[in-house]
Amino acid sequence: MNRLYHVTLSPFCRKVRLTLAEKKIEVELIEERYWERSTEFLRRNPAGKVPILRMDGRVMAESQAICEFIEETCPTPPLMPRDPEARYEVRRLCAWFDDKFNDEVTRKVMGERVWKKVMKLGYPDSKTVKSGLGAIKYHLDYMGWLLDQRRWLAGDVMTLADFAAAAHLSCLDYISDVDWDRSANVKDWYAKIKSRPAFRSLLADQLPGLPPAPQYAELDF
């Protein structure tokens, strides 16, 4: 059985979960308390990060590398276009969300409101949370601008870029920190991707002691 060592509300783990589910690759989910840095965990990935995928005798780390490996070894249905320019755009947007969006929004909001509580690191810093919630407006506006010109974020077909964005936004939506009324385009895009079968396991996630927001699992939100 393939195994994915993950954390429930990690956008990087969620991106891999979405990719696996879209490709209909069965995987056993193993919750990994990576912050405890067990010897066994560090043996799997000395970088001390999740996700870690064990598949076909290989142990793989780094979400983007994992997703592209899955795409290359299981190309149906495709999540990367064939055209080099289109592939570049997918990779650019994956980096946008996994680097810029993560630094400016996810890490600040989720780090303060969720992971401090889980890791028992004290109370949220309101200034950091406010900064993250301010920054998300810019990103939603940028996504809205992209979706004015395209059916999906990177073009006219769904790609890994959409999964990267949805992975981050779904974590924030779990704690009700996305203003879906800011952009009708973004709300419609998220409703489309949220209704895919690949998304079902994410919508069933529950973090002990921190239940999801009421609209989190609702397809009509």
Rank of each mutant, 00 (worst) to 15 (best):
L202M: 14
S126Y: 05
A21F: 04
T39K: 14
V90R: 09
Y5C: 05
D177W: 12
R151L: 01
P212C: 07
K187I: 00
E68Y: 08
K192N: 04
M119E: 12
V59F: 01
L203Y: 11
S176G: 15
R182K: 14
T128G: 01
A165R: 14
S63L: 07
P51A: 05
L53A: 09
L18N: 09
E112S: 06
F97E: 00
E104C: 03
E68I: 06
L18M: 14
S176Q: 15
Q149F: 01
R17H: 02
D56L: 06
S195N: 12
G209Q: 12
H6F: 13
E104Q: 15
V27Y: 02
V105C: 07
V50H: 02
V118G: 03
E218M: 13
D220H: 15
N102C: 06
P75K: 12
Y123A: 13
T19I: 00
R82D: 14
E62K: 07
D148H: 13
I136D: 03
A161T: 01
S131F: 01
E71M: 06
D162I: 09
A86D: 06
T128I: 14
D156I: 04
F221A: 13
R107P: 00
R87Y: 06
Y34R: 12
Y190P: 07
A47W: 05
C13Q: 03
S10K: 12
L9F: 10
L133T: 14
R92L: 15
G57M: 08
L140K: 11
R37A: 13
E22W: 03
C67W: 11
A65S: 11
M60N: 03
P46E: 04
E40K: 11
E71Y: 10
D141A: 14
R113V: 00
S170V: 08
Y88Q: 08
M60Y: 05
T159Q: 03
E218V: 08
L147T: 12
G111P: 08
A166R: 10
R200D: 12
Y34P: 00
N185E: 10
Q64M: 13
Y190R: 10
R82K: 10
V59S: 15
K130H: 13
G209E: 11
A154Q: 05
L210G: 04
R113K: 15
T8W: 03
K194W: 11
A184V: 12
K49S: 04
H168R: 11
E31M: 09
M143Q: 04
T73V: 10
V7W: 15
Y142A: 12
T128N: 01
M143V: 02
I193Q: 06
D56F: 04
K127C: 00
D141S: 11
A191I: 07
V105T: 03
E31Y: 14
W145S: 10
L42P: 02
V16H: 07
V27R: 10
M143A: 13
L153G: 02
P46R: 14
R107S: 12
P212N: 08
L121E: 11
D173L: 07
V27G: 08
F199P: 06
V59W: 01
V27K: 10
